[in-house]
Amino acid sequence: MVANKNKEHEKIISPTRLMIQKFKANSLAMFGLWTFLTIVTIVVIGSVYVNVTNYDLADLSRIGTHKYLPPSSENWLGTDRYGRDQFIRVIVGGAISLQVAFLSTILSVTIGITIGAISGYFGGKVDNFLMRVTEIVSSFPFLALAFTLSVIFSDVEQTTKLFILVFILGILRWTGLARIIRGQVLSLREQEFITATKALGISTKNQITRHLIPNVVAYVIVSATIGFAGAILSEAALSYLGLSVNEPVPTWGGLLQRASTSTIMRNFPWMWVFPGIALFALIMSVNLIGEGLRDAVDPKSEIMSKSRKGRRRKREERDKIFAEKELRDKRIGEKAAGIEVKS
């Protein structure tokens, strides 16, 4: 049965389908995907509820009676030092962490694609200039920017502060992606179909958007996943240094930072265990998805089989299937690398 299925793939060979197929077959990655979706769903439902009920995050009315209560049927995850419900804070914190990570990833991916594509497509002086800029940005110390911008914009409102945070997290992280895209574009540019589009008189813009970018979309997705996990961790790091948002706005990083003292760890475990698990599960799932995607994108990797029986045989078969494609990819890769170093 399974062997037959594989035979069919031999004929199809559409890269996207192949990718999906590979990803689906990777149970670790699928596990990550489901975990991720579950977390997102809980967080979205929770924050919708919080918004609809107009929940007051700055509610101090229970400070006298509800300080640091352990989990109970009333407060599922206990309460914090201000007597507020920890469950709500974890949910809202998740929503904000996810938004910040999402927006900053979009920012960095957009910049990365744009710079990489322009650089790779036009080459020459434009390329040279943009690659210099990329090099400068990539060796720029992240914390210098974070420290300075936090000082300059410390007196803005919390909402604005979230956007500053997005900016800080997104503005320096595009360089790796830009380099990859540039390399890809450079190598694709030499391939026949681009020459063909040129010959057909299709405009430059169309060439980039219609033909080049879809070819590099796989790399973008992988890089975005990694960037997403990185953004959440960096927000936590900034929280630890006191450079993130203040009360009453929660983030997972902020919740962890406020619980990271040995006294709280010992006496009020619910303060750190729950946000810790949530953050851990999220990053873990994103990393698993990222790994899965990377394998799926990688032409050299193979579809993982769900049964352990006969794996070696199948592997050998697949080796054959990919042999040709691999050879081509390798050639492209080398070319890309060669040009990359020239810069």
């Binding site: 961790l233 936590a236 990083g253 962890l256 990271s260 953050l279 851990f280 990393n287």
Partner: peptide, 16 residues
Amino acid sequence: IVGISLPSFFMAMILI
């Protein structure tokens, strides 16, 4: 992957 799925300060606190 577990090793990179928690912020380093938190990992450090847990170990401490």
